[in-house]
């Protein structure tokens, strides 16, 4: 039974996406209080996305390759592994680096608010992009799980 681990990976990743959306919304105003809250949200997002990397990585290396991948490839949606999972496992690696960059930019912004007008917009764009990328990974994960479920349904039904 490996569902708790993939559930944990999905929860961590989706919660991280919510944190980046929260930070993005705080940056719409960009007042000192908003920047402090955006910093907190981005730090949480960074920790969550890093934890999702570890949980998903352990699941991928120890369980997915032997137990899930062969089932998906024999099912009606083999592309769920061959295209989506292969893409997801590599693109996911980008997220912690983007989150780290966003967190460092918010640190600079909160320490140097007079420059806020120049720093706020690029930080906001990066947070929006990060939310979009993290959300896309969640969508890919859903489709990979759908490929597994479709393969099992083919056997059971």
């Amino acid at each position: 039974m490996h569902f708790p681990l993939i559930g944990l990976h999905a929860w961590l990743g989706e919660f991280a996406a919510v944190m980046f959306v929260w930070a993005f919304i705080e940056m719409l105003t960009g007042a000192e209080r908003n920047v402090q809250r955006a910093r907190l949200a981005t730090l949480l997002g960074l920790v969550l996305v890093f934890a999702a990397w570890l949980a998903g990585g352990f699941y991928y290396v120890e369980i997915y390759g032997a137990g899930v991948k062969p089932v998906i490839k024999q099912g009606p949606m083999p592309w769920a592994h061959s295209i989506l999972m292969e893409t997801k496992e590599h693109v996911f690696i980008f997220l912690p680096f983007l989150a780290f960059l966003a967190h460092e930019m918010l640190k600079r912004l909160s320490a140097n608010l007079p420059r806020g007008v120049i720093l706020r917009k690029p930080t906001q764009y990066l947070l929006g992009f990060l939310a979009l990328m993290t959300g896309s990974m969640a969508l890919f994960g859903f489709l990979v799980s759908s490929g597994f479920r479709a393969a099992l349904e083919q056997v059971v039904l």
Partner: peptide, 18 residues
């Protein structure tokens, strides 16, 4: 002073790589 170019570069790089 203006980090917009750097950040846009990172986002384009990430999107193109993905």
């Amino acid at each position: 002073d203006d980090l917009s170019g750097l950040v846009k570069g990172v986002m384009v790089s990430a999107a193109m790589a993905a």
